[in-house]
Write a protein that binds this DNA or RNA. Sequence first.
DNA 1: AAAGCGTGGTC
DNA 2: TGACCAAGCTT
Length: 373
Amino acid sequence: MDAEELRRFRRSLLAWYDRAARDLPWRRTHDPYRIWISEIMLQQTTVVAVIPYFERFLARFPTVQDLAQAEEEQVLRLWEGLGYYSRARNLHRAARVVVEQHAGEFPRGVETLHDLPGVGRYTAGAIASFAFDERAPIVEANTQRLYCRLLGYASDPKSAEGQRTLWQFAEDVLPSKQAGRFNQALMELGATVCTPKSPDCESCPVKAHCRALAAGLQHAIPKPAVRPETTDVTHAAAAIRHDGRWLLRQCGAEERWAGLWDFPRIELAPADAPHSKGALTAARTLRARRAVEQGVARLTGLSIEAGDLLHQLRHTVTRYRIRLLCFHGAIRATDVAPTASEEARIRWVHPDEFSALPLSMTGRKLAEVVQGL
DNA sequence: AAAGCGTGGTC
DNA sequence: TGACCAAGCTT
């Protein structure tokens, strides 16, 4: 676009945003802390899912100081069910950086923001422009799709060349004033008009500037990403009660759901697991029980006996379809002591206290099952 | 630089 | 039911 077309584009977009903008909680403030929280929560997550988490999180941690002083486990507890839990751990770390290295004052400037844990190129630009009105470009899912269509960019937007092209456009298109509002308008257009499946080009305020529409390619652009196929896996867990309390274990740093609590759970070798759609034969059930006994011993240092199957469930996560077999379990001997590191990761929990811990998805589902026992 | 990381909604 | 998608970042 030449300078004149750029001016018309900006004017049309802002005029549309004036009447079409959704009223979202994080659009009612310029507080960088609140904007930061919202941006982290919104990473790969829908607006509808985020809103209740956002309100609850801010009520519990109104300032960056409150967040920095909290225990990580309490931060994770407010994140439970939102997914991508490294976001919560990074958020907590970053709050401590802001308090300790920036005197509790949120840093300005894309580069300083980018240094915070969990803040990448997009999020740094978002905070800088929304909170401080800096002229910082952004590219995320909505704007990536929008820019691709406006430019008629038909190659892979995720490639190095694609990213160079899109970030360059994101910068070129930004006005020198009201950059934050303009970035919001770009995203809003992508989210509500220039949508993935059936873009509403008829009512688009900038359709006159869209190369994809001019070529009739709005459905073919952007080029869809190739997705990895999902793999079937079987996990086995043990539900072990002692004095009315259940044995839970905190997932380790290298595991899925790191930092969250779950019933002791292992992945079964294919030989010990039922075929993905097949029935669980007696022989395989027995092998799964032996495997979960060994697994619990390794994870907790406790000797247990696995009994009948208590519950089965399926859960899909990223690229794995997990089939979970949960067995009743009983402590075999009381004189076995976990090592210190195992000890730190296991807890006997009364059902009334489940809600005080951040639970993994499988932990949450099984907690619900054992509530009724 | 490719792979890992969650969950819920929609079509 | 399953594929697709959502205000990405880290290693």
